[in-house]
C-alpha cells in the first residue's frame, strides 16, 4: 500500500514538473542575457490556448507544440521590442504581458473552451515500461517529459559551453563591455527573449495538451509565477532547475494523493506547500550565499550605446 503510494506519486511527479522546467529554462535564457520577463504567465496562457486550438483543428498534438512555441515567441517578441528597442521598464512591461496574455486568450479561446483536444498520452516503452517499480516512474511518461529533459541539457550546453552562450552571458553581465567587444547587445537580448518565449509557450501547451487535454480560461493558474521563483532557486543554472522543478512537481502531485489515501492531514496546510516552497526557495539561497547573488549583474538594466559610461 505504502509502496504503491510512493510509486504512484513518483510516477506522476515528472508530469507536474515538466511545465515548471520548460518555463524556467525559457526565463533562464532571458535572464542570463539581462532581461527579466515577468510575463511568463501570459506567455504560458498563449501557448496553452494556441496548442489546444491547433490540436482541436488538426487533431495533431505534435503539430500543436511548434505552433504554440511560435505563439509564445511572438508575444515575447512584442515584449522584447518594447524592452530592448524602446527600453521600457522590464517589470512593468512584463506585468502588461500577463494581462495581455490573459485577455487575448480569453477572447480568442472562447469558442474552444472545454473542447476535448488530442494530446500526449504516456508512452509505452514495452519491456522498459514493465520494469517493476522503476518502469512506471522512468519509462511511462509522455514524450514531452523526455523532450524537456533533453532541452535542459541543450540549454545547459548552449549557455555554458557554446560560443553564442558565452556572448549571451557577457551581454547579461556587462552589456557595455560586451558591446565594446563587438557583440550586438540588442540582437542577443532580443533573440534570448524570443527563445525564452517559445519555451514558455511550450510550457503552457504542456498544460493543455498533456496535463488536461482541454483549454479553459485562466488555466495556467499562477504556475507562471512559480516558474519565476524557480529560476531564482536554480541560481540561473539548468541542472538545478531540473531539481527545483521536480521538488515543485512532487509537492503538487502529493496533494490530491494524500487526501485520496485518507491521511489525516490539514489540507489547507498541504495546499500551501508549493507556495511555502516558493518562499523558502527565495529566502534560502540569499542566506546561504550571503551578499553575493548569482543573478546576472546586468539583469533589469536596459542598455543603449549612447548611455555607456
Amino acid at each position: 500500500m505504502a509502496a504503491d503510494f510512493v510509486q504512484n506519486w513518483l510516477a506522476t511527479t515528472p508530469g507536474f514538473a515538466t511545465p515548471f522546467l520548460l518555463g524556467a529554462l525559457g526565463l533562464m535564457i532571458n535572464e542570463r542575457a539581462g532581461v527579466l520577463n515577468l510575463g511568463c504567465e501570459g506567455m504560458m496562457l498563449v501557448g496553452a490556448m494556441t496548442g489546444a486550438v491547433v490540436s482541436f483543428h488538426t487533431g495533431l498534438a505534435g503539430a500543436a507544440i511548434p505552433v504554440a512555441m511560435l505563439a509564445g515567441a511572438l508575444v515575447a517578441l512584442v515584449f522584447g521590442i518594447a524592452v530592448v528597442v524602446f527600453r521600457t521598464d522590464q517589470v512593468l512591461t512584463g506585468l502588461i504581458v500577463v494581462a495581455l496574455g490573459d485577455g487575448l486568450t480569453g477572447v480568442i479561446g472562447r469558442p474552444y473552451m472545454f473542447e476535448k483536444v488530442a494530446g500526449f498520452r504516456d508512452l509505452d516503452l514495452g519491456p522498459l515500461s514493465d520494469i517493476p517499480w522503476l518502469g512506471p516512474i522512468l519509462f511511462q511518461q509522455d514524450i514531452l517529459v523526455y523532450a524537456a529533459a533533453a532541452l535542459a541539457v541543450l540549454v545547459w550546453w548552449g549557455l555554458d559551453r557554446s560560443d553564442a552562450g558565452l556572448r549571451l552571458r557577457a551581454v547579461g553581465e556587462d552589456p557595455a563591455t560586451a558591446d565594446i567587444a563587438g557583440v550586438n547587445v540588442q540582437l542577443f537580448r532580443l533573440s534570448a527573449v524570443v527563445l525564452g518565449g517559445a519555451l514558455c509557450g511550450m510550457a503552457g501547451a504542456y498544460l493543455s495538451l498533456a496535463s488536461s487535454f482541454v483549454w479553459t480560461e485562466h488555466m495556467v493558474g499562477g504556475r507562471g509565477w512559480i516558474v519565476i521563483a524557480l529560476v531564482i532557486f536554480s541560481g540561473w543554472r539548468p541542472g538545478r532547475a531540473v531539481v527545483g522543478a521536480l521538488i515543485f512537481g512532487g509537492a503538487e502531485a502529493l496533494i490530491p494523493r494524500i487526501q485520496a489515501m485518507g491521511f489525516d492531514v490539514p489540507i489547507y496546510l498541504v495546499g500551501m506547500l508549493p507556495y511555502v516552497l516558493t518562499l523558502a526557495v527565495l529566502i534560502v539561497p540569499t542566506i546561504l550565499r550571503g551578499e553575493r547573488s548569482p543573478a546576472p549583474s546586468g539583469l533589469l538594466l536596459n542598455y543603449l550605446r549612447q548611455d555607456r559610461r
Binding site: S211, V214, H218, P256
Partner: peptide, 22 residues
C-alpha cells in the same frame, strides 16, 4: 478530495487520477 480552487483543470484531473489509483 478537495482541490482548494473553484477552477483548475490540471488539479482537477490529477485529483481524478488519484481517486482512480485508490
Amino acid at each position: 478530495v478537495f482541490v482548494n480552487t473553484w477552477y483548475d483543470p490540471v488539479k482537477e484531473t490529477q485529483a481524478a487520477e488519484a481517486l482512480l489509483e485508490q
